[in-house]
Amino acid sequence: MRKILALSRITFLQGVRSRVFYTLLFFAGLLVLSTVVLNQMTVGDPTKIIQDLGLATLSLFSLLIILFIGAQIIGKDMETRSIYLILSKPINRAQYLLGRFLGLLSLLYANMAAFSIIILFILFLYSHTVKWSLLLSVGLTAMEMAILLAFLLFFFTFMTPTIAPFLVLSVFVIGHTTTEVKAIFAQKEGFYHLFSMALYYVFPNFDILSIQTEVVHNVPIPARHFIYGIGYGLALIILILILTHLVFRRKDF
């Protein structure tokens, strides 16, 4: 466990010192601040667009961190000799995977926490209340990002560093559209129906982890939804990491 934590710690350091990270952070900050300008253009509740755009920015930039920083660190491991200095230590391949996974996850979550605070603060300036329920949405988004991170590790074990991030992006898009696609093709027979069902069951369903709209409209979310979401996410993450390990342990460097 100590070795996993030691590896996750330097993974975090590598990520947080990356120039790409700061660039992403800067643009994300700009986007969140732009909500202050954008809400002048709506009629009615000014906080709606702050919440909508804030949560969308949080998701988008978390995804970009996975795609860029994750790809930078893991990709470098897989393609250059940088992994030699890790795997030559007395750790097994599972410990390597967990160490990298937890390191990137902690980087991701630190980022999400910072953004959540900024969004809550901006909202507070307008509404003079702290909308804690937004954190429920962030929580489930955090689970979604952990799933995508697991996919990143998985794809990197057998794909080139250029292809792997695109595959993760595809999983993101499919995960957010699979429910709609299934509904659209529900009435049709044959190929389209089978295709949409296959997509729905094979790929993760991020729709169930997306409660932005409900939270923004103050629709009460039962605690069960949150618990099921965590359970769903954990199950998928463990599955993907196991599959990753099965491939990774036989990988030649």
């Binding site: 954008l38 253009m41 709506t42 009629v43 709606k48 667009i49 919440q51 909508d52 755009l53 949560l55 969308a56 998701s59 993101f172 898009v173 957010h176 559209t177 991020f206 729709d207 997306s210 932005q212 709209t213 923004v216 409209h217």
Partner: peptide, 14 residues
């Protein structure tokens, strides 16, 4: 809109 239909609605409303 990838499950960000609230944001999409905002943009259409704007």
């Amino acid at each position: 809109s990838l499950d960000f239909e609230g944001l999409a609605a905002d943009l259409v409303w704007i």
